[in-house]
């Protein structure tokens, strides 16, 4: 570095984090495509752009992202259910991880809905891989995917009568006393 460079360096703008810049670009494109107010609670934990939307819009949004020539979210990395019993009206949720391999952008979309009405549109018409992922979410959280060709349990036995990943079912039998620990609250 020459002395001139050293002198100029402090005035030069601080190089922006490339991931942040990319996320900002993607977010701008998302709001342009799907309108203001579609996405709430936008943040980027550990560099992965995360947004919450509604179950009414989720199918259109993911279909739009898949077809968008600029972003090309051709790859559904994974999806999983989640249960927050303390959020009334939004107890259950689905979390989608999309990946654009051409641009190497990842995107996380979330939807939340009441546990009394756990109905979500299917993505099996967009991605073949959604089939088993949705069966898994149905199996463990009881989320119903409308339009799914074969929504039956996948990992648990068919005659199971509850959805075990919901928070109301503890891992251990609550009535057992031999495992109680005064200090560590087993």
């Amino acid at each position: 570095m020459t002395p001139q460079d050293a002198a100029a360096a402090p005035e030069a703008p601080v190089a922006e984090d490339p991931i942040k810049a990319q996320n900002a670009q993607v977010l701008a494109l998302l709001t342009r495509l799907f309108g203001e107010g579609t996405f709430t609670d936008v943040h980027e934990p550990y560099g992965l752009l995360t947004a919450t939307t509604t179950r009414e819009r989720i199918h259109d949004i993911i279909a739009g992202l898949q077809q968008d020539q600029e972003l090309k979210f051709h790859f559904l990395t994974t999806m999983c259910g989640i249960n927050y019993p303390e959020n009334p009206g939004q107890e259950l949720g689905m979390i989608y991880h999309l990946h654009s391999m051409t641009k190497n952008i990842r995107l996380r979309l979330k939807i939340f809905f009441p546990i009394a009405d756990p109905v979500v549109p299917t993505l099996t018409d967009l991605y073949n891989t959604a089939n088993w992922m949705e069966r898994e979410a149905y199996d463990f959280f009881g989320i119903i995917f409308t339009g799914h060709p074969n929504l039956i349990r996948i990992l648990n036995v068919e005659d199971m009568d509850y959805h075990p990943m919901r928070r109301e079912y503890p891992v251990e039998d609550g009535t057992r006393e031999d495992k109680t620990d005064l200090f560590f609250g087993r």
Binding site: H74, F75, T129
Partner: peptide, 8 residues
């Protein structure tokens, strides 16, 4: 390749 990507 298309099928493989669609199937994850």
């Amino acid at each position: 390749a298309e099928k493989a990507l669609s199937y994850g």
